[in-house]
Design a protein around this nucleic acid. Sequence first.
DNA 1: CTACGTACGTACAGTCTGTATGTGAATTTG
DNA 2: CAAATTCACATACAGACTGTACGTACGTAG
Lengths: 201, 201
Amino acid sequence: MKSTGSKHEQRSRATRAALVAAARPLFGERGYAGVGTEEIVRAAGVTRGALYHQFRDKTDLFDATVQAVEAEVTGLIAARVTATAADPVEALRAGARAFLDAFTEPDVERILLLDAPGVLGWRRWREIGQEYGLRLVTTSLTAAMTAEAAAARPVVPLAHVLLGALNEAALMVAHAEDPVAARVEMTEALDQLLDGLLVQG
Amino acid sequence: MKSTGSKHEQRSRATRAALVAAARPLFGERGYAGVGTEEIVRAAGVTRGALYHQFRDKTDLFDATVQAVEAEVTGLIAARVTATAADPVEALRAGARAFLDAFTEPDVERILLLDAPGVLGWRRWREIGQEYGLRLVTTSLTAAMTAEAAAARPVVPLAHVLLGALNEAALMVAHAEDPVAARVEMTEALDQLLDGLLVQG
DNA sequence: CTACGTACGTACAGTCTGTATGTGAATTTG
DNA sequence: CAAATTCACATACAGACTGTACGTACGTAG
């Protein structure tokens, strides 16, 4: 369990990690614009000088925070998908449910769905989502389609609209007056969407 | 063509309209955070005092701008839907195409899809979308479903995921390297989504 | 040991938002 | 119709925040 790199690199990684760890709950609670850099560095136990040495600007720190959150939730979802890998169609449904659960967490929703597109721009947002989540969707979708012997269709645009539907469903559930009932509703709606894609030839 | 109301009211409406009209292209070009109130009031030919007299704060002006844009694009889409109202299923598809065209405009995309959720919060964003767009989707969807004799399903959650898919599709098309090809692709993907909902019993 | 690069702290300048106060025109009232 | 009041707006100001310039201590290379 030896840390690698020179002492300078170790120190850099430590402060970067501390800043991201401190920024995540703050950004998740009050949004990107609602929390200043001073509060972040105080929570991280460093100064603003350290922040602006490690990150180009505030959005760069936010970018790193987004990546951290995305990596975390993708890991959770992937675990549930691979656990159901025996049945590809059911794995796809399980992935949708896991997605709903993960993105319904208030801080995840705020960071990944509400603030990230506006702050980082759609291009960068989608780039990160591509790196982490969309890959999982496309592979699951192709596996399910081949297993179901559905007509081979361009899978990438389908994956995109699916991801959009998933995002919207998560936002729906998160803000419903009755989240439990909403989760059931949206799960059914998503299942119908998936069935529609897989059933017809 | 007489204007109604007292001179005070007329003046208020005029400055409100001037501010929204001035804010719209600026917010659409450089985003909510990228343009200051001073620039807006200068473009509108008033001062910051007028702005903060007519609107509670900057987000309140942005709220009004969002509503203006939404009203405009909804009008465009509704026109194309009612023009195809004879065939409800085809009207639904026409609505999807009109949606893609409208929300692909860069300023519309930036204001309604990228900035609005983060600035106004999801709740308020969806409230506005509900008032203008979602109503159109649900009515079109129910008309198509009854015409197609598809199984009656809870239409509201379906309309939500559909709207999410439409949002995502518009963002896709807007940022594709080849927007023309992307529009074809996404139109097909959306048609498949709609077919899947309408065909199966 | 010397010279330099790296990580970080501090002080400052510029910008922006929201508010408090002043002013003239419009409306109401005695 | 004149006085008083309200309304729309202009101006000046206070507070906060971001990004940068500069200084410093520690680690590293020659």
